[in-house]
Design a protein around this nucleic acid. Sequence first.
DNA 1: GTGCTTGCAAATTCTTTGCAACTTT
DNA 2: AAAGTTGCAAAGAATTTGCAAGCAC
Lengths: 157, 157
Amino acid sequence: MKMIFNKMDKKNQTKVSQIWEHELTRSGGRITPPRQVILNVIASSQRPLTPQEVYEASREQLPHIGLVTVYRTIEKLEALGLVNRVHHSDQCQTVFRSTPSHQHLLICTECGQSVYFDGLEIENEFQKTGETLGYTVTGHWLQLSGMCQDCQKGNIQ
Amino acid sequence: MKMIFNKMDKKNQTKVSQIWEHELTRSGGRITPPRQVILNVIASSQRPLTPQEVYEASREQLPHIGLVTVYRTIEKLEALGLVNRVHHSDQCQTVFRSTPSHQHLLICTECGQSVYFDGLEIENEFQKTGETLGYTVTGHWLQLSGMCQDCQKGNIQ
DNA sequence: GTGCTTGCAAATTCTTTGCAACTTT
DNA sequence: AAAGTTGCAAAGAATTTGCAAGCAC
């Protein structure tokens, strides 16, 4: 199994924000201060965020920003496939940057820090499972949870 | 990989309802007509249901039942571990009977018909994945989606 | 009888929509 | 200038809470 540890660093944050701005422009959208702030908040986050959390983090940089703008920007980013909705059992509406290739999330239960990983072998198993049950498997949804290295060491995030 | 095709039949529905009633009693709860109806609706469903759907199906048997009672009964069943919340990308609050052993759901995208399956080998892969990423994997969440045999044949559910 | 349960109404929370003013290109 | 975007306020949807009456044990 191939693994890709794609934790986001400062350099990549900027890059992701730039790509997102480019995609927005390309689809006829416009780059405004509120959007730049929201894009940056989501792109630089190590964990999935709720609309409320995006809103609160954005207000630190742009106090008069509106929650509605956050919702509409997320909607646009999702339509462009740049962010994904992430579901937990209690939290269903968090957003996290998506990956170009087909990967899955591993989320830290303590601090929420998340990484993507590749799971081609696992996906082959899914097909076999479906055949046994008489289903044609067309999609899957996999998320792992656990504790990241920082939290194992007892660090505060 | 061991597979368990545990589609629910009439005989099992009754049995599940009875077990649920017993668990309710054991935990100090009471068996009332509204609860019996709700339990039966959920136990006999081949697919995850929203609170609204449980409500509507229950009203056919007990017209004056309240949506609030459905919410509270689901809450109780979930607390007892008898039903699970099932999430899709758009639908986050559906309920489906849980399994005693550790299994995963395969949901038909057409009709919602769902079956549980066993995936021990897959779970071993999850552990390996976690190690590679520096995480201690403590939980996972896996759902497959596809098309069931009936829908492949073009039957109407 | 005691204590859990019900259903109504109201409150709360989350998300979406209408709209006039304002920016971006 | 044209078209997209913003933030406010209001609407809408989903879920939870308070409470008096009712029911199970």
